[in-house]
Amino acid sequence: MSNLVNKQAGSGRAQQWVMGLGLLVFVLVAGMVLGGEKGALRQSVPGITGLLFGSYGIWLLLAQLTRWVDKAQLKQATGLWGWSVPALFALFLLLVWQMLVDGFAVPPVLLPSPTEIGSAFAGSLDMLWQDFRQTYLKSVLAGYIMGCGSGFIVALLIDRSPFMQKGLLPFGNIMSSIPIVGIAPIMVMWFGFDWQSKAAVVVIMTFFPMLVNTLSGLASAGKLEQELMRTYAASHVQSLLTTRLPYAMPFIFNALKLNSTLALIGAIVAEFFGTPIVGMGFRISTEVGRMNLSMVWATILVAALAGSISYGLLTLLERRVTFWHPSVRAGKR
């Protein structure tokens, strides 16, 4: 469908010249800004023009690369190639970020440069690990397991009772539109400052997505399959284990993935309401108070890594469990 509209195939010779020139200019400007003094870009018209022109050159390069990758992927299935363009794009953004911060001498209170964040990250690995252990390994994991587990079990229980489903599902739907993080102060008062209160917030945040998704997953098994099981005189448990749970797996993994992000958010926000002197939410709120922004960004980097890695791991697990699902098979080509 996209090739119908996308008419930018084949780059002309002129465009290639512009691309090469742009890349050259970009490298020159980058060397000038990063090697020179801070504030080199301030009121420097050639510098800014060079940066803009260079960025255009990079853009053309990305476009060219995209076409190559698309072509290569048509021929053979390579997953890693698909990441080359976004990776290059991110690298380019980081470079521009660094150049802008250095070039315009942006005060670090406002926006620290990537290198400053990196050195803050590397310089306080120990503290970041302590925070990570408190927030992620204690609150998030405990709450995530309890919340997802109880959501799943309750779903299995009320699966047999259409009446309970009718009664509970509207609540599940309402819960999706209300800000559950708001219960954080209540949980902090009930369960104290330590990780238990954060885990409680996480449990409540993750329970309903799991419940609703599992229920609809169990209902997603086809009628034919269910009737087949009936003709086999399969018991409830048998048909659950052999047909309906496998059919529910994509839904369950969907909930697991969404919950992994929700859990981290819940734990960090709950720490804003009171915490022992360790934890990612605590670190963020205190370092903001001290205007030590590179440390805040380093903590966010940890949170981002934790979030993406757990999401990635869940995706991998999903591929192994639901290898039969069309969306997974399409991905493998």
Binding site: T261, L264, M280, V288, L293
Partner: peptide, 14 residues
């Protein structure tokens, strides 16, 4: 997948 809500206070304070 990034718990972006966590940086909310920072955006506000900055």
């Amino acid at each position: 997948t990034i718990p972006i809500l966590a940086i909310a206070p920072m955006v506000i304070v900055v």
